[in-house]
Design a protein around this nucleic acid. Structure first.
Lengths: 241, 241
DNA sequence: GAGTGGTCTAGACCACCCT
DNA sequence: GGGTGGTCTAGACCACTCT
């Protein structure tokens, strides 16, 4: 395995990181499973324990893996609450977390427009799956959501009768796709007549529009999601350093 | 200096980090200046170079300092463009960065309401400085902004005739206050008659409301800022991992 | 007690920056 | 050439987890 590591290129720990990410991506180690110990990885790859450690720590920073003292290193497994905690930035106005439910939802196959194709790195006209659903909190509708998926990555999903409430753990479990980072573009708009009806608002009420691209651990975009969110009693929270 | 480091408490590198942050905070090293080398810090504090390095690297992660190979370690200095790059998340719809200008601005002394006091960790009724200003892009008004500062931290600021366009580098230069992290709460609203007039919109047009708390390197809140932002051709960008 | 990751040390070599 | 941070190694001890 030493020959996979060439001298003089990028730092050793970055090369080790790439090898480990590749293995996770191809399923050598699956979500929830443990990786070999630092010592055995070091021996196998022909580098020192410290170098493996640095690679593992950068991966833990990106939450690709989780490390637990005394136990081992585990591939991050998406559970519904854990995904929610990580990628759902909407809180009640008083700061409490929300666990949204799902109301009625619809699914159809479509073809990617130029704009959608560009955002998901597809060719215009490639097949996409479009899901629209209404999300709820305490039985009140709060978010009108449109989800766009490349069909080639999610074959058979359109046959699924009832999609689960939280999708990212489902993507990982059923399609081996792990969402690792998302970019969200936020704007404000006012409710159309249709949105007002669905969200139980007056036409012209303000809505927060969250336009999200989600990518996997190799930075390939795998989902576009556009959410129209009421902010009467809700807010979107972002922290910057 | 070894006695400042007690055994058995938090990890050594965290204690080193605390000492260094404290020194930066009290002005032993000022923004833009270089810290001593790893070797001399290690010798002075009685720890190994590796421990100092770990402390410095975590501080660099939090951009309290900047490290340059071959040159040295520098206390992060806020420059107007650098601050903008870091804490201003608003882009043109096409993704281009914005460098906002400032239109008319007003300043007054006031007393903190309960809500403001809570957000800035003040006592209700403590004196605050309130600045309202209009921000522009390509000579068009885009943001209506209210800035609230604890007067005790910014004494004499109310006498300043013309406040600069970017404030965080000014806080650092004139008040030795370095903004290190911000939390932003986003909601949507519709323009009041007054806002519509100032921002050159129709009454009822959608606005993105950005309610920000900025804190210094010791996590003390030092500014509240509420921005009402048009999103016709603008968007707020957030990245999550 | 054995195995894991977390911390800490010590020393080597490299790449980069200055004079 | 001398000083800086960046990488890499090797080994020690500690804290935690499980059996």
């Amino acid at each position: 395995m030493l020959d996979t590591i060439k001298p003089d290129a990028r730092p050793l720990y970055a090369q080790v990181r790439d090898i480990l990410i590749e293995r996770i991506h191809t399923g050598t180690w699956s979500p929830g499973q443990s990786l070999p110990s630092e010592m055995s990885l070091a021996a196998e790859l022909g580098v020192s324990q410290g170098t493996v450690r640095k690679a593992l720590n950068t991966m833990a920073d990106d939450s690709i893996i989780e490390r637990r003292q005394g136990k081992g290193t585990y591939v991050t497994e998406h559970t519904s609450t854990q995904v929610l905690f990580k990628f759902f930035q909407i809180y009640e106005a008083n700061g409490n977390r929300i666990e949204p439910g799902t109301g009625k939802s619809k699914l159809k196959i479509n073809r990617a427009s130029k704009e959608v194709a560009r955002s998901l790195k597809l060719k215009p006209g490639e097949e996409i799956i479009e899901i629209t659903r209404l999300r709820t909190h305490n039985n009140n509708p709060i978010i009108d959501e449109l989800i766009i998926l490349p069909r080639k990555l999610f074959s058979g999903l359109e046959l699924q009768k009832n999609l689960p409430n939280t999708l990212y753990d489902f993507y990982q479990r059923d399609y081996a796709i792990t969402v690792s980072e998302v970019e969200e573009n936020l704007t404000a708009s006012v409710a159309t007549k249709k949105q007002a009806k669905e969200l139980n608002l007056k036409e012209g009420a303000p809505l927060l529009v969250i336009d999200r691209i989600a990518a996997d651990i190799e930075q390939t975009p795998i989902e576009r999601r556009i959410s129209y969110c009421t902010t009467d009693n809700l807010k979107y929270v972002a922290k910057l350093r």
